[in-house]
Design a protein around this nucleic acid. Structure first.
Lengths: 212, 212, 212, 212
DNA sequence: GATGAATGAGCCTTCATTCAT
DNA sequence: TATGAATGAAGGCTCATTCAT
């Protein structure tokens, strides 16, 4: 590793720690430099400013988690109606677990995204995921209607809070330091729970869709 | 209104606005003073410091919402088993709506509590409510077991995230500026949804407990 | 005691405490008012400003201690040469003890004068006493010379520091909270000690002047 | 001199002036910066805070003067009884003069220490020196007793004020701007004077120990 | 006689950022 | 590539003092 890369890495290490502890706006570039054993000038050579440093640390993971989710959605919609009927639940669970696994791999970064991103354009990860889910859910609902499960109409606002509350729950696993194995089980429980909620709200009998 | 009260009111108005926009730690007492048309010295006459100003604005409402919730819980546990069987759901809904109504009455304050309380002792309103709910839920679960609904065991971690995700959903109504009437309906939907989730997780047949 | 006098007294009580603890410049009129249970406005009605409050507390005692000293000096110079020969030492001791007694009677005030008067025109009590003593001492020296005790010449600067160091010692009794009885004995010791110092410096045999 | 060193030096110059005029707690970092032609930010680059700036200016000299004194004491106690009898006085004088010389070399700093250190941990230089001297004096007294000069017992409180009054006198030379040469002579006089005081108090005949 | 709200300058300190070297 | 000194605005907060009531 070149000397330059070493500096960069030390800065990133220190920055992760600082952002984790103080959040974006509470973080001090001076402290980060000091902790990294580097001058502020050096920090500014590697990163244009505080925001860019923050983005460098969490931006990619933010994008990736969104992508992971969207891939999951697409997997469902790439299936035949028959397959959907049978496997939607499983795919959803699988997708959730993939996301969870990824987040646990970059735990620090996601903790920062969850609790320390106020004041940045990443502060609404949950909303972003929620909006993506809304689209998918609406497609699913339309789909169910076609299959003659005439569920109740759901207010978009309600839909929004339900979905986002699901993601809230999921992210809480990380911000509360639940160990990964436990988290997996919890995620499955969370999924079932919300699934049941949906089925109830849409007036779809339990057994038809989700038998576990 | 006396001149003093006018000053105080102008400060509070400006402070609410500032805390709403920038959160506790991002708020500037200088900006608040200026916006209120008052000197910083005057601000410090009315409030001991930044924290006290913040607490004055949100503290009472924080306490009240916790109290409202606990009263709701007690109402349920004051009932006979028969009544509980029939009315738990209704009481829960009623309690939720009371809380919602109160929050809408002090919308700005609760928006501040939800999004701007980082760095204060109010930053964990959801956790506080969650922990209170956990107690109640556990009592309820024990109760159901006695009635021979041998539900599945639930991990405490899962329980925690489920409950807190419910409150998250509820608070989102406020932070997203959903109009009050819509919010009421959404809250009922949210309640049903989560109720269904619980019933499913505890393996209790839908109809037995919650028929709506 | 009228209501006005009561207020005044409470203010003075609180001010004494504050000046004692923080000195003149560190003292806060706000704190004094609060401690006195009075408004700042009231304080300013009774005393023109911080300085005047300070002066009211210590000014009279400052003047009195100077006066006490000067009276002691005059007592010596009112005596005949014969008497002076015999009683100068005794008078000096008596004067010192009178001063000490007075200071102990107004211990708080003198502690303030000793340690908390920086920034006021009382900050140089020691210098003031010293200058008064210098005059007297010089008269005494001139006198001794007339009586054929041809002592060494003493630099005025030396004289100054010797005298002021004596007063320093004396005041230390108060600022160190030595109990009054002990302080009296110490003061006598201090007097003898400095007397011996002078005799030595002026080359006057011990026995002639001071036999104890 | 580099540009940095120049800034630092200008800050120190201005700070010395400010501390001298207003003392530690009355000094303003803003004024120091302005006087130095530097921004407050720059001042904080060079010194962590007000206290550290103060310590940088006086701390080393404070330590040095204490050390000088202790070396003087040790020189005496390294001698044989015979030597002590003959040279204690000379060593004491020499030590005093060394201290004086050092203080005059850093006159500003010692003036600050003497009159402007209230509120810092240097505010009790005299007490520190006094306590060190007390130990030495007590050793000396024990020593004299062994040699059958059964002096009077002296109260510890008296001892304390006598010693500290001596140091007071010495420091006054500096705070009163006595020129160095004059100060040297005064210091010798001060030494003799206090020596005579001790001899008298301990009832030791003048000639035996100190013949000058 | 007393209230107490208001003033406005001042305090020490921290910040993200720049730039000559 | 990196240094590190410098910037200048802004932060929360305290102060002695005034004045309408």
């Amino acid at each position: 590793m070149s000397k330059e890369e070493k500096s960069r890495e030390k800065i990133l290490m220190a920055a992760r720690k600082e952002f984790l502890e103080k959040g974006f706006s509470g973080a001090s570039l001076r402290r980060i430099s000091k902790e990294a054993g580097v001058t502020t000038g050096s920090l500014y050579w590697h990163f244009k400013n505080k925001e860019e440093l923050f983005e460098f640390i969490v931006g990619g993971h933010y994008d990736h988690i969104i992508k992971l989710y969207e891939e999951g959605v697409n997997r469902v919609f790439g299936m035949t109606p028959e397959e959907q009927k049978l496997f939607t639940g499983d795919v959803g669970k699988a997708c959730m677990l993939e996301m969870l696994e990824y987040m646990y791999q970059y735990k620090t970064e996601f903790k920062i995204l969850i609790d320390g991103a106020a004041g940045t354009r990443y502060e609404n990860m949950i909303q972003q995921l929620t909006e993506a889910e809304i689209h998918a859910t609406q497609r699913f609902i339309r789909h169910m209607r076609k299959l003659d499960f005439e569920g109740r109409r759901i207010r978009p606002e309600l839909e929004h809070i339900l979905v986002s509350s699901m993601f809230s729950g999921m992210l809480e696993l990380i911000s509360h330091d639940i160990p990964f194995e436990t988290a997996g089980e919890c995620a499955i429980g969370l999924h079932d729970y919300h699934n049941a909620g949906w089925m109830h709200l849409l007036n779809i009998p339990d057994k038809d869709i989700q038998a576990d």
